[in-house]
């Protein structure tokens, strides 16, 4: 029993957050220009090309005017990966090992499958099609809950505001709706909705930040289905 990963999509079909745990087959870094927003997952965002570093709109990692990542411990908006603001218990929050992507082409990382941006689009496409299919078949406003294959199970949770949380787990896992609900009502509300430094619904960047990542990580690692 385990949990593989979590995707969060907003109502504009964009992936705004990604977090993985026990994946043996990790996606490759996203392609540059593949449509992946910055601030989704530090480990999987496209590598900034050396000359154009910082030219991408709104990447506070490399912006010279970035004053957010101070170590004052007040509030850090975006996950920097190298900084750990004081005040956050990072002991339990081991960030996933960064994908060793040699060379700009994102080197074939250990037999990984698709680039992350394409994978995210496929996931969104599948849940969208299944939602429509379920609606057509039932004739009601019924939503799709999960599907299972021989090696994994995908769970969907939709919020009223149009955010969709998708979790991949072991095929024998029970419904993870309550987990995704508690991710939404806990870390997501606290560190995204109530965080003035995270532009929600911006369509230009994701919602990833250090507190959110650490808090989701703690929540998921504490589950009995997570081993």
């Amino acid at each position: 029993m385990t949990i593989y990963c979590l995707y969060v999509f907003d109502r504009h079909c964009n992936c705004v957050y990604y977090h993985d745990w026990h994946r043996t087959k990790r996606p490759k870094r996203a392609n540059d220009g593949g449509g992946l927003l910055p601030g989704v997952s530090h480990a999987l965002s496209p590598l900034p090309s050396s000359s154009a570093a910082g030219s991408a709109p709104g990447t506070p990692f490399s912006s010279p005017r970035n004053t957010l990542a101070s170590n004052s411990g007040v509030l850090v908006a975006f996950n920097d990966g190298s900084q750990s603001p004081s005040g956050v218990p990072t002991s339990s929050a081991t960030p996933p090992p960064p994908v060793q992507a040699q060379g700009g082409a994102g080197g074939a990382a250990s037999g990984a499958g698709l680039p992350f941006d394409e994978e995210a689009k496929l996931v969104y496409g599948v849940i969208l099609s299944l939602r429509n299919m379920v609606k057509r078949l039932s004739g009601r406003d019924e939503s799709f809950v999960s599907y299972r294959t021989s090696t994994y199970k995908l769970h969907l949770f939709e919020t009223v505001s149009g955010y969709r949380l998708v979790m991949l787990s072991d095929p024998n896992a029970e419904s993870l709706r309550f987990v995704m609900r508690s991710i939404y009502t806990g870390p997501f509300l606290e560190y995204v909705v109530r965080n003035p430094l995270v532009p929600m619904d911006s369509r230009v960047r994701g919602v990833d930040n250090e507190y959110l990542r650490a808090s989701i990580d703690r929540l998921v690692r504490g589950l009995s289905v997570f081993q």
Partner: peptide, 25 residues
């Protein structure tokens, strides 16, 4: 969908979707 689901596997190769659950069926 069946073809895509087999490609989304987080571990190794996977079959396509075997059971798809909605709220009432």
């Amino acid at each position: 969908i069946h073809a895509i689901t087999s490609r989304l596997s987080p571990t190794g190769t996977s079959s396509g979707a075997q059971v798809i659950e909605a709220e009432t069926f």
